[in-house]
Simulated assay, not measured.
Amino acid sequence: MAALVYFRKISEDGELVRYEFGDDPDRFTRHLTMDKESRTSSADDGRADYSFVKASRKINALREERDRWPDRGMSVS
Rank of each mutant, 00 (worst) to 15 (best):
R39P: 00
K54W: 11
R27K: 10
R39H: 07
D67F: 06
S77C: 09
D44K: 07
S41K: 05
P25W: 02
D35Y: 14
Y6L: 04
R63E: 04
R30W: 13
G14I: 06
R72P: 00
E65S: 15
R8P: 00
A48V: 15
K54D: 01
T33A: 07
D24A: 07
G73P: 05
K36L: 14
D49S: 10
K54R: 10
E15M: 11
G22L: 11
H31K: 14
E15S: 11
S77I: 08
M74L: 12
R8M: 09
E65V: 09
E37W: 13
D67N: 09
R47D: 04
G22D: 03
M34F: 06
R57I: 04
L32M: 15
G22H: 03
Y50T: 05
I59G: 01
V53L: 06
P70V: 01
D13S: 08
Y6R: 03
D35E: 14
I59N: 01
R63M: 12
S77A: 08
G22F: 10
D24Q: 08
Y50M: 04
D49I: 11
H31M: 13
L16T: 05
F28R: 12
I10Y: 14
V76E: 11
R66L: 14
P70K: 06
H31Q: 14
I10P: 03
L32P: 00
D13P: 05
R68N: 10
R18P: 02
G73W: 12
S41W: 04
M34W: 04
D44E: 14
K54P: 00
K9T: 02
S42R: 08
L4A: 06
I10E: 15
E12D: 14
F52E: 02
K58V: 01
E15D: 12
T29E: 15
R47E: 06
D24C: 13
T29G: 13
R68V: 06
F7K: 02
S77V: 11
K58L: 07
L4P: 01
A61C: 04
G14P: 02
K36C: 10
V76Y: 13
A55N: 04
I59H: 01
E20P: 03
S51E: 11
K36S: 07
F7Y: 15
R57N: 09
A3H: 14
P25E: 02
E15N: 08
I10N: 13
Y50P: 00
D23L: 06
N60P: 00
R68S: 09
E64K: 15
T40E: 14
R72V: 01
P25K: 05
D24M: 08
R39T: 09
M1Y: 13
I59P: 00
L16Y: 10
G14Y: 10
R47W: 07
A43K: 05
F7R: 03
R30A: 07
D13K: 12
G73F: 13
